[in-house]
């Protein structure tokens, strides 16, 4: 009796997990499949599993529409955000993990509120200020805005990583005559890389995936890949444009697939870190 119920349970388990994997992956698979078809085959009735292969959509998008420009924009913005955000976030996160007074607590709480803020709330302010200052449509502007929006999360995450590094380590260095800054660079920096990598992954995702801010602050020639997709959101009536949009969406997805492939463990540990300390 017991064995029978356990066998039917494992059958249920296999079916359930199978259904979940299909649900999770199907939108990606189908998007990739139809991106290498001509429009008639991509949206044929009835849908076809096999259809003639073509790279026409990718050619149109990358070569004719110069999507590579958006790729470089994405690379510049994402790398810029990553470097600045981690540098200033490390300093703050370290200090907050070692300071015990109330100021540190309230800084973290304000950061929590900032982290929960929908990004659109800041846009009217940016529109006014950046137009007045004449710094609209510049890489530096977008990078520093994304860094600032990213900071609350970065600080929280790095702080919890630093909190796991024993205090004795840097205190021993202080006793030996190091300054705080010296202790940070000589003792903490060499052992903090796992935390940096994990936090960096999430900073990367935030900058790379951002649509709202990037599409609002940059004009067409400086748009990131993600923001450039806005041109294809309502292209359902124009079959060729729609197909380019699909090729674009697949292009944006590919780096993320590699990211998960190489950094699966760090991504999981980052999510868990947030849960345990958050």
């Amino acid at each position: 009796m017991a064995r029978k119920s356990s066998r039917s349970l494992s059958g249920l388990l296999a079916v359930g997990l199978g259904v979940w994997v299909i649900l999770a992956a199907f939108p990606f698979l189908w998007m990739a499949i139809i991106s290498v078809r001509v429009p008639v085959d991509a949206f044929s009735v009835p849908p076809q599993l096999l259809a003639p292969f073509t790279l026409e959509n990718y050619y149109e998008l990358w070569v004719v529409d110069q999507f590579y420009v958006k790729f470089f924009n994405s690379a510049i913005v994402t790398l810029g955000v990553l470097c600045v955000s981690l540098s200033i976030g490390c300093l703050a996160g370290y200090a907050l993990s070692r300071y015990e007074g109330n100021l540190g607590f309230w800084l973290l709480m304000v950061a929590l509120v900032f982290r929960a803020l929908p990004h659109s709330t800041l846009l009217p302010g940016y529109q006014l200020a950046f137009a007045e200052l004449g710094i609209w449509n510049r890489y530096e502007t977008l990078i520093i805005v994304l860094v600032a929006i990213n900071q609350p999360f970065t600080i929280w995450m790095l702080r919890s990583f630093f909190a796991n590094i024993p205090k004795d380590l840097d205190e021993a260095a202080l006793v030996d005559g190091c300054t705080r800054t010296g202790a940070f660079f000589r003792v903490i920096v060499p052992v903090m890389w796992p935390g940096i990598v994990t936090t960096g992954l999430f900073s990367f995702l935030l900058a790379y995936n951002d649509f709202l801010i990037s599409s609002q602050l940059m004009n067409a020639d400086k748009q990131t890949m993600t923001a450039a997709l806005s041109a294809y959101i309502n292209a359902d009536d124009d079959a060729y444009k729609l197909m380019q949009g699909i090729a674009g969406a697949v292009s944006v997805t590919i780096p993320l697939i590699f990211l998960v492939l190489f950094f699966q463990r760090q991504l999981v540990s980052g999510l868990v870190q947030g849960a345990v300390k958050g």
Binding site: A25, P27, F28, V252, L267
Partner: peptide, 24 residues
């Protein structure tokens, strides 16, 4: 592999994820 497949919808660019479902 199960964790890999599950992480994809989570890390995906929201616009792309939403579009990939819209196109279905």
């Amino acid at each position: 592999p199960l964790i890999f497949a599950s992480l994809l919808p989570f890390v995906i660019t929201p616009v792309v994820g939403a579009l990939s479902i819209k196109w279905l």
